[in-house]
Design a protein around this nucleic acid. Structure first.
Length: 942
DNA sequence: TATTCGACTTGGTGCGATACCA
DNA sequence: TGGTATCGCACCAAGTCGAATA
């Protein structure tokens, strides 16, 4: 069986993701609550504790029915059952670890549960119930439409079931791919029809919704039954789980091959990189009891084991480590080798390349303001992409800049703005007043309702108070910041209402500052700096449930700042009376200044703008690596599919994790400290983050992901997976608590080391770039009709972009006033429709009159015709706008556009379909992707 | 060898600027 | 021309990943 195309699969899922997004978003609130129960069950076993937690989680979630609770209970009881049979020393070790974990987990959950629900839901308040239903309905309708389209001319019931079967069991990947494409196409089509059929859908999908719920329940019961059968039959309990598994794996393999799932006898096709070397490793020859050895010991435990066994024979060294030592000898290819895609011709041009005056194409409009803008845009462009790249690790030869710009000193409040404590007026010292001001500014923000935020703020505030102040101010709830808050609001109101002259003056001032601090000279070229301002003091606003939220971000002084510039440059002067912490001349890094922030102890940097050479070059290189992955992705997929049946648990875990990273574009998931928000990525997923369903909504082997990812954005996805992946997941979850790592023998470092062996420069995040870019390209190919108008082409582009954003889970809060603006747009559309109707009537009359023969009347008729055409075009444009805006409600397109999509794909598409690049990229984006705009022709293929 | 650090990239929010429309 | 909707972009938090360090 050949490897499925994850892109198509993703796309196929995308509707689902979208559909569920709002669903889960609404569910977030309830999802992780009830700390009380948690605390009260302190004395009960940890398993019970987790079950309680889980039950609470489920019962409060709208879509989890009580049957799921039962299922979970049953599931855990079956777990208990099987675990009671196991009594190896490893178990003892594990239980030790479990105890540690459960303590740790208790701390975490206590913290988590204290206010998690309420706070997390804040973000989601914007996503209304209505949205949730609509999105779900959309995905349901899409599914329905897809089926309808597919079975237009045949008896639907019979064919539906057969098509479902096909969906899962098709052995031909070709068929699979084209089907996915059809499905996506249908989905998009149905989306465009959505806006018009909103009302109808709403009622019909409600019915669907309720019927599918009851269906679900019975399915869950069936599923539960089969699950318990599975745990007792397919995975009988023995001392060595992997041996047992191997037996089962063999029989399963046969079974699966017949089912069309089998992947035995797959041959690894040739690959440019060291894959063959990897394949030669005697995986199958490893002793059967390997599982009980170190290879299959959880990473965290391995450390201790390692210390006990300092002398290992070569055979005992894990494959990865062996490879690592080999790798040391192996010379990493230099940049030029990696950049094989960069045409040699361009390098030939290197000597010729000089700063070239390029007139950047702007809007064709000839209005004076636009002309002025056009002139401003005529700037010197450094065509660095035509020069030869240094590959000695240095980033520059000469670097000169003015240093960073510091935040203005604190401006004390006017005497009439009072702070009160316990109802009494109180004059604060300057430092205490400044920090109080940070809080007062945020008074109407949700942050100030969070206990953690308030506690952290109050602790840090007290640190800057005078002795006297600290003696008096002991309770935050007695502090009255209202006058201060009103003052700041008033101030920003005044700023907003500045006169034209005042605004112009301010603008000129800012431009001056930008001119002075906003640029640097790097290797003879003037380049824009990205962030030349030092972050001002304030209160730390962590995202999600950040334990440090509310802490004071101190004012950064020149004495905290490192300056980086070249020796032969003019070293920036520190503000008078101050000195720099250090002046460095390190040309192996790209930052110009750096300091360490006090809250998390992290380094902050002043760096160049994305339009700079240093950033552009890195960007280009990133997409070249992704393109290289494209060349060997099939081999890599075959490889990890084979590893699903490896003897070593760690190899299996790695293979399954990689499958998720590839197919679902999950982030790698580094480990995190306890003083950070509890978010996860693929490698750090815990058992509680997935649910396994042998059957769900008519699909087999469904994994439900539900976790908080980067920035505490919820990831919810129901993914049908291959049977072997499913079985492996069951195995990984065996005897584990909810809080245990799903991939306990894997971390991002070992995963990336493995990936490096498969392809130089390959890391987990390359898959995200690759899958995003290839999805864009394929979607554009599919969705673009060369014969339609430019607005329609742009809609197609945005849809392709949206597919990527959904794949990467780039969500955003529904913009404020979205529904209002949609209503306004709808009214506008209705008005336009009325106009069209009127114009049609006019034209009918005029045509009749024209038939009578007068020239004047014929002319009038032509005029009416043109007017009608114009109105129809306007109507179409408005309708497209409506569809686009509604589909984009909760999806953020910008991130994928800026970070994941090879800009050459978009440039080529614009050139091929005569769409002005300005329609796709704004000025800043065009600056960032200038290299791509210059080098990609209409035939560029990712 | 595990952990920490350093240097980046990625990512959402919110506010001011700009475009659009009546 | 003024009001409002939309867009652009600064801001800064939070990731990834390789190298240094203990």
């Amino acid at each position: 069986m050949s490897v499925e195309n994850p892109v198509s699969e993703n796309d196929c899922e995308s509707g689902k993701v979208n559909g569920n997004k709002n669903e889960h978003v609404n569910g977030i609130h309830n999802g992780y609550s009830t700390s009380e129960k948690h605390k009260s069950s302190h004395k009960s076993s940890s398993k019970d504790k987790h079950r309680d937690k889980d039950r609470d989680h489920k019962s409060s979630s709208k879509h989890s029915s009580s049957s799921r609770d039962k299922e979970k209970d049953k599931h855990s009881s079956s777990k208990n059952h099987s675990s009671s049979h196991k009594s190896s020393s490893k178990d003892k070790e594990r239980s030790e670890k479990d105890r540690e974990r459960s303590d740790k987990n208790k701390d975490r959950s206590d913290r988590e549960h204290s206010s998690k629900d309420k706070d997390r839901s804040d973000r989601d308040k914007h996503r209304s119930e209505k949205d949730k239903h609509r999105d779900k309905e959309r995905s349901e309708k899409d599914r329905g439409d897809r089926d309808k389209d597919r079975h237009k001319n045949s008896s639907s019931d019979e064919k539906k079931s057969s098509s479902k079967e096909k969906d899962h069991k098709s052995s031909s990947s070709k068929e699979h791919k084209s089907k996915d494409r059809d499905r996506d196409h249908d989905k998009e089509r149905s989306k465009s029809d959505k806006s018009r059929s909103d009302k109808d859908k709403h009622s019909s999908s409600k019915d669907k919704h309720s019927s599918s719920k009851s269906k679900d329940k019975s399915k869950d019961e069936k599923q539960e039954k089969s699950k318990s059968e599975l745990s007792s039959q397919e995975y009988p309990v023995k001392e060595e789980p992997m041996q047992v598994d191997d037996v089962n794996v063999k029989s399963e393999l046969k079974e699966e091959s017949e089912d069309g799932y089998g992947i035995a006898n797959t041959t690894v096709s040739s690959c440019d990189y060291s894959l063959s070397q990897f394949k030669d490793e005697p995986l199958a020859d490893l002793p059967d009891d390997e599982e009980s050895g170190e290879e299959n010991t959880p990473l965290s435990e391995r450390k201790a084991v390692k210390r006990r066994m300092p002398s290992e024979s070569k055979e005992d060294i894990p494959l990865l480590q062996r490879k690592k030592s080999k790798k040391k000898v192996k010379k990493e290819p230099d940049y030029d080798e990696e950049e094989e895609e960069i045409p040699k011709k361009k390098k030939m041009k290197a000597e010729k390349a000089k700063a070239t005056k390029v007139k950047i194409e702007q809007n064709d409009g000839a209005s004076p303001t636009k002309r002025k803008k056009k002139q401003e845009d005529e700037q010197e462009v450094w065509k660095w992409w035509e020069e030869e790249k240094k590959d000695d690790g240095t980033k520059w030869k000469f670097l000169e800049h003015k240093g960073p710009l510091f935040a203005p000193p604190y401006d004390p409040l006017p005497a009439n703005v009072k702070f009160r404590y316990d109802g009494k007026e109180m004059r604060l010292s300057q430092d205490a007043e400044e920090v109080a001001g940070f809080y007062a500014r945020m008074l109407d923000h949700d942050y100030t309702t969070k206990p953690a935020f308030n506690t952290n703020f109050f602790n840090d505030w007290r640190k800057v108070m005078t002795h006297e102040e600290a003696k008096t101010i002991k309770d935050l709830s007695k502090c009255d910041f209202k006058e201060m808050h009103a003052f700041f609001q008033n101030q920003s109101e005044r700023n907003r209402n500045k006169t034209k002259e005042e605004k112009a003056e301010l603008k000129a001032k800012n431009e001056e500052i930008q001119k002075e601090y906003g640029f640097c000279i790097i290797d003879g070229h003037k380049e824009k700096i990205g962030n030349f301002r030092i972050e001002p003091p304030g209160l730390f606003r962590g995202r999600g449930e950040h334990p440090k939220m509310g802490m004071l971000k101190k004012r950064v002084m020149p004495e905290d700042v490192l300056i980086n510039c070249s020796k032969d440059s003019k070293v920036p002067k520190p503000p008078s009376g101050h000195k720099w912490k250090e002046v460095r001349h390190d040309n192996t890094v790209t930052w110009l200044a750096s300091w360490t922030e006090n809250v998390q102890g992290q380094a902050k940097y002043v760096m160049l703008n994305p339009s700079s050479k240093l950033k552009g070059e890195k960007d280009w290189q990133k997409y070249e690596t992704a393109r290289k992955l494209h060349k060997c992705i099939d081999t890599i997929r075959e490889n990890y599919r084979n590893d699903w049946k490896a003897k070593e648990m760690r190899v299996r875990q790695r293979a399954v994790a990689l499958y998720f990273i590839d197919r679902l574009a999950l982030r790698a998931g580094n480990e995190k400290d306890d003083d950070q928000a509890d978010t996860v990525g693929c490698c750090s997923l815990r058992v509680e983050h997935i649910e396994l369903h042998k059957e769900k909504d008519g699909k087999e082997y469904v994994v439900v992901f539900d976790f908080l990812g980067k920035d505490s954005i919820r990831y919810y996805n129901e993914v049908p997976v291959e049977k072997r992946v499913f079985k492996n997941l069951e195995l990984f979850m065996e005897n584990k608590k909810d809080s245990d790592d799903l991939f306990d023998r894997l971390n991002t470092q070992t995963l990336n080391e493995h990936l490096k062996d498969l392809m130089p420069g390959l890391t987990a995040k390359v898959f995200r770039t690759y899958n995003a870019s290839i999805t864009l390209q394929r979607q554009l190919d599919e969705l673009t009709d060369g014969d339609v108008s430019i607005p329609e082409k742009i809609l197609a582009y945005n849809r392709a972009n949206r597919a990527v954003a959904i794949l990467c889970n780039h969500q955003r809060a529904v913009p404020k006033g979205h529904s209002k603006s949609m209503e306004a747009l709808k009214e506008k559309i209705q008005a336009k429709r009325d106009q069209v109707d009127e114009a049609e009537e006019d034209l009918r009359q005029a045509t009749k009159a024209a038939k009578r023969g007068s020239v004047k009347e014929k002319l009038a008729c032509d005029k009416k015709k043109k007017a009608l055409e114009r109105l129809r075009e306007q109507l179409k444009k408005l309708e497209l706008q409506e569809t686009d805006r509604d589909e984009n409600k909760t999806i953020a397109l910008g991130t994928s556009k800026l970070n994941y999509l090879d800009p050459r794909i978009s440039v080529a598409w614009c050139k091929k379909h005569d769409v002005p690049i300005e329609k796709i990229y704004n000025k800043t984006q065009r600056d960032k992707f200038r290299w791509a705009i210059d080098m990609a022709g209409p035939d560029y293929i990712f």
